[in-house]
Design a protein around this nucleic acid. Structure first.
Lengths: 221, 221
DNA sequence: GCTTAATTCATACGTTTGTATGAATCAACC
DNA sequence: GGTTGATTCATACAAACGTATGAATTAAGC
C-alpha cells in the first residue's frame, strides 16, 4: 500500500496506549507487551511500525511536542505583533508558554495530563536517546522566550532571566504532572479541573515571581 | 553478632550505590547487579540486608527524608519561637522548607543532588509501595507549613495557600532535580554551584509568587 | 482475479531481571 | 578453641523483557 490512509490505525492505537502507560508507569517500567495488550495489537506491530522501543518513545513524545511548541511560538508571535514593538507584559509571555498545553488538557483531559507527566519523566530520565529531541525541540523555544522576557524585565541580567524562566517551568511541570500530590495534601479540595483557573493561578504566581526584586528585601513583610 | 557496630558496612555501601544509581537512571532501570557491582558487594547482600528491591528503595529514601523533614520542622519551630507569636515572613517559612535540603547539597554535593532527583522520581512514579512513605513523611510537614503560610498571608484562602505551596515546591524540585536543563538552555552560564545564592533565588521567586494578588491585574506592566 | 505490497500474527531466541538456596567464611564469646 | 550467630558468596531458577523471523492475512491496482 503506497498511500496508507487509515486513521484509526494500529499505529495510532499503539501510540495512545504507549502514551498512557508511559505516563502512568514510566518508560522502563512499561513493557511492549503491556502496550500492545492495551492497544489490542500484536507484539510484532511495535517493531514493524516503530522499529524499537526507544523509537516508540520518541514517536510518542514528538507527536505532542512538535505541534505544542509550534503553538507556543505562534502565540508569542501574535502577542508581539499585537504589542507592535513594545515589550510584552510578563503575563502575556507566560500565557504564550503555558496556554497551549493547558488547552490540550481542556480539549482532551487524559491525553493532556499524560503528556505533561511524560515531559516531566523525560527531564528526569537521563536516557541518551532523548537528548537530541530535547535539544531540537527546546532550543528555539528557549531562545525566543528568553529574549521576550529580557525585554519585559530589562533591569534583570540574562542569568536572572534564565533562572526565573527555569523556575516558572518548574511551577508548571510540577503543578500539572504531580497534581495528585496537591490533591492529597489539600485533602481533595484543590483539583486541576477548570484549566482556565489553573492557568491563571500559574501565571499570576510566576509573573509575580519573575518580577521579584533580586536583592534581599527589608525586614518588614 | 548481637551488636553490629561496623559503620563502613556493606549495608551503607549498598545504600550509597543505590542512591546514586537510582538518581541517575531511575528505580526500575537500575538493577540490583549494577548496585552490588558498584558497592563491591555480593548480589545476595541486597536480599540479606533489605529483603527485596522495593524495600531497598524505601530504605534509600527514608535515610535522607526522615532527618531532612525533622530539620525543616525544627527550623520552622525555631523561627516561630523567635517571632514570638507573630506571623512569620513568607521568606522565613520558605527558608525553613528549603534550607535543609540545600545544606545537604552544600555538605555533600553529590548525595544532595541525588536525593532531590530521587524525590522528583518518587512523585512521578506511581509505585504503590511508595505511597505509605509519602503519606507518613509529608503529612505533618504539609500541615505545619500550610498553617504557617496561612498566618503569613491571611488575605488568601486555604485553597490559595495549598496551590502556592504546591507551586513553590515545584520551583524547588525542578530547579534542583533538573538543573541540567537550566545549564543547557543557558549554555552553561547558570549553575547550581553556590547553594546560598540558589537558595536566595528560589526564596525570592517563591515569596514573590506567594504574595501575588489573586485577581487579574490591570493592563499596565 | 491474479499479483503485489503492506500489514498482522504466532512463535522463538537470547538476555537480563529479582529472588531463593545452601555452603563457606568471619567474628565474637564462654 | 570450639561453638554460635551473623554475614558473605557462588550459583540456580523461573519469569519477563526486547527483538527477530517467517508464515498468514489483508487490501489495492491492473
Amino acid at each position: 500500500m503506497l498511500t496508507p490512509h487509515k486513521l484509526p490505525d494500529t499505529k495510532s492505537a499503539i501510540l495512545n496506549a504507549a502514551e498512557r502507560l508511559f505516563a502512568a508507569h514510566g518508560f522502563k517500567a512499561t513493557s511492549l507487551r503491556a502496550i500492545t495488550g492495551e492497544a489490542q495489537a500484536n507484539l510484532g506491530a511495535v517493531n514493524y511500525h516503530f522499529t524499537a522501543k526507544d523509537d516508540l518513545i520518541l514517536a510518542v513524545l514528538r507527536r505532542r511536542m512538535r505541534p505544542l511548541n509550534a503553538e507556543r511560538l505562534a502565540l508569542l508571535d501574535r502577542f508581539e505583533a499585537e504589542a507592535g514593538g513594545r515589550p510584552l507584559k510578563v503575563e502575556k509571555i507566560l500565557e504564550a508558554l503555558f496556554r497551549p498545553p493547558l488547552e490540550l488538557i481542556a480539549r482532551d483531559r487524559k491525553a493532556g495530563r499524560y503528556f505533561v507527566r511524560l515531559i516531566a519523566q523525560c527531564l528526569i530520565e537521563p536516557g541518551a536517546f532523548l537528548q537530541p529531541l530535547i535539544q531540537e525541540e527546546f532550543a528555539e523555544r528557549n531562545r525566543r522566550f528568553h529574549s521576550a522576557m529580557r525585554r519585559a524585565l530589562p533591569h534583570l541580567s540574562s542569568e536572572d532571566v534564565h533562572w526565573r524562566l527555569h523556575f516558572a517551568h518548574g511551577v508548571f511541570l510540577h503543578a500539572l504532572a504531580n497534581s495528585h500530590v496537591l490533591e492529597l495534601s489539600s485533602r481533595g479540595r484543590c483539583r486541576v479541573g477548570n484549566s482556565d483557573a489553573v492557568l491563571h493561578r500559574i501565571i499570576s504566581f510566576c509573573a509575580s515571581g519573575c518580577r521579584a526584586r533580586g536583592e534581599r528585601e527589608g525586614e518588614k513583610a
